[in-house]
Design a protein around this nucleic acid. Structure first.
Lengths: 216, 216
DNA sequence: GCCATTGTATAGTGGTTGCTACAGAATATC
DNA sequence: GATATTCTGTAGCAACCACTATACAATGGC
């Protein structure tokens, strides 16, 4: 549990096969994507290993050989999810010069991500490991730190907005970042509960009102 | 699972004991309160029956005789929680004539509720049954309908605000109610993640910005 | 062909889950 | 006191959990 996240996190996983023994009979990345879907729909603990194996098309020994254990598989899946679904939205928010339009676009994009492509959805980082038994606290805390990173991300963008003169110097960046994070997390729960994307986008459109009035 | 929620939900449970056989050896309401604490900390499924029994000071047969099964116990506990912690805040929001002050006060009170008295906290309705295995879908849906009621509650208050001429007629009540609900749910997750009450209150203070500007 | 190495499938491990059978204890009615 | 009724404690149920021991299959190097 303490060691590194070896294997595919380092290499782009397009290496032909430099090793000796019997070759793996499945595509590791593809299996990870299948596991992600199961975790997304069920959450971390309700997703059983047999269900994961069925979805991945493999048997338990192959899962444990390739991913270590259920917790490591989950954390890899979450990282994969985070990159695959949220990287573009984050980059776009960083590149948009105007902080208002940047945050508006981010939440609009979030509304789209949160309802696709599985039902029920919501953000894996927000929902999948909220309630865990005492022996999964490490997983809970790993995911919690990812949520914390989300707040930091908002705070950085807001700080730049202040530096660029778009937001007033009196802006309480920390409080505002927490508020934006709360909106995103609340949207996740509503997506999970089956809210349509149009209504989710309606919530997202309200988010900009939380920012201090544009000085112009 | 289909039947009523018999027993204490009807009577104030101060009846001396009209029945015949051996009297119950524990206070039902007190045991329910203890069970609530366990569900609050762990969530529905991670809370095991043995842990519940230990906290309640009884054995499994007593639990099942008094509450039916784990699911019914949980739903009773959630109802108890909802009344005990949120009734006052809701009534206050209804009685406050000004919709801005009413919603502001509600979220300020919510920030206090969400961090007390247990750690980690957050709202039981929001968090406790988000991730459940397929055989607990009935519990999930029961809690989801409670969340839906929360939105309806916001919508009613906003509608009155429009009728009272405090909010513009153009107000999108449905979308705004969803937005307020999202804020409350997001605050729950942050409370669960250990945010201090002061910071939570800071988020709550931002909520009024979501309402249309006061016409005065 | 032979060995070392790695992956796979079968079949299970011990442990925990929600729940209950059973026998005994405590009450009301008679 | 006898009986019916209800609750309680012990002990254990079948089902599921994450995980793995073992034997076999498939590869590279020789």
């Amino acid at each position: 549990m303490t060691s590194s996240m070896n294997e595919s996190s380092a290499a782009p996983s397009t290496i032909p096969r430099p090793i000796k023994g019997r070759p793996r009979g499945f595509d590791r990345d593809e299996a990870l994507a299948q596991a992600l879907d199961v975790f997304w729909q069920r959450g971390y603990e309700p997703a059983s290993v047999v269900e994961l194996c069925t979805a991945m098309g493999i048997n338990p020994p192959s899962l444990y050989a390739a991913f270590g254990n259920k917790a490591k598989l989950f954390l890899e899946a979450v990282n994969f999810y985070d990159r695959k679904y949220w990287d573009a939205a984050r980059v776009a928010m960083g590149q948009e010069p105007d902080v208002y339009r940047g945050i508006e676009a981010f939440f609009k994009e979030a509304a789209a991500i949160l309802v696709s492509p599985l039902a029920p959805c919501g953000c894996l980082v927000v929902l999948a490991a909220i309630n865990v038994s005492p022996n999964s606290t490490e997983v809970y805390e790993a995911i919690r730190s990812m949520r914390r990173a989300g707040k930091t991300f908002f705070a950085q963008r807001l700080r730049r907005g202040v530096e660029d003169g778009q937001l007033p110097r009196s802006t309480d960046i920390d409080s505002l970042a927490s508020t934006l994070k709360a909106m995103l997390e609340g949207m996740s729960i509503q997506a999970r509960d089956g809210l349509a994307q149009a209504e989710l986008a309606g919530i997202a459109a309200n988010v900009v009102k939380l920012l201090p009035a544009q000085s112009t």
